[in-house]
């Protein structure tokens, strides 16, 4: 139902449009974080540090549902769908290939929305700890969320004992994605 970008749009316009998608998405991650029980009890400095380190990874989890492996298209949060071939011309090839691979792995676990949300919370509080002032508070928050996620998943799927470990194995994948791609360039038109 969403229009696919046609030849009338230049690469520059597509790049800027793509860049703009991230602004509302990042704001939504901030709002999401505020809703995580215990997150706002961390110092503001530590909240900011976790968000700066972890938002890209949370977005990667969030965005994976927008990847259509069969059609090889990506639908962005502004509603526009681009074929992979078009996005490659923007120099995003390696990131997108890694994203398709990650989204297939995560998609195969068939998480319910509440499991996905709790997983995103774990991703955020498991982000890089450089600059964190109260490590113990962050670790306690992380442990609590991981316990809650394990409890939710094992209660719902008692016969699939491999699911929770497979899910945790996605955390290093996300860190790799972050390290490889968070230096990608975005472009914005400003007054």
């Amino acid at each position: 139902a969403w229009p696919v970008s046609g030849a009338e749009r230049t690469s520059q316009e597509i790049w800027e449009s793509f860049s703009q998608c991230f602004t509302p998405a990042v704001k939504e991650v901030v709002e999401f974080a505020k809703g995580i029980p215990g997150f706002q009890e961390l110092s503001q400095q530590d909240q900011v540090m976790l968000l700066k380190s972890g938002t890209f990874q949370v977005l990667m989890v969030r965005f994976c549902t927008l990847f259509n492996a069969e059609e090889r298209t990506v639908t962005f949060l502004n509603g526009q769908t681009y074929p992979l071939s078009t996005l490659r011309t923007l120099g995003m090839g390696s990131l997108l290939d890694a994203m398709f691979e990650f989204s297939e792995k995560l998609g195969s676990l068939r998480l319910e929305p509440d499991e996905m949300a709790l997983f995103m919370a774990v991703v955020l509080v498991s982000a890089d700890r450089s600059g964190i002032s109260d490590m113990r508070a962050v670790e306690q928050l992380q442990e609590g969320l991981i316990r809650a996620l394990r409890s939710l998943i094992t209660r719902r799927r008692p016969d699939d004992s491999a699911l929770f470990p497979k899910l945790l194995l996605r955390l290093p994948d996300l860190r790799t994605l972050n390290n490889m791609h968070s230096d990608k360039l975005l472009a914005f038109r400003i007054d």
């Binding site: 860049s19 991230f22 602004t23 791609h181 230096d183 990608k184 472009a187 914005f188 038109r189």
Partner: peptide
């Protein structure tokens, strides 16, 4: 005419987060 600003995804994320917290203080 508008100026083209180019920044990394990491810097953009950082900027949005800083703005959000500053606005809510």
């Amino acid at each position: 005419p508008k100026t083209l600003r180019v920044m990394t995804l990491a810097d953009h994320i950082s900027h949005i987060i800083t703005q959000d917290f500053a606005r809510n203080q």
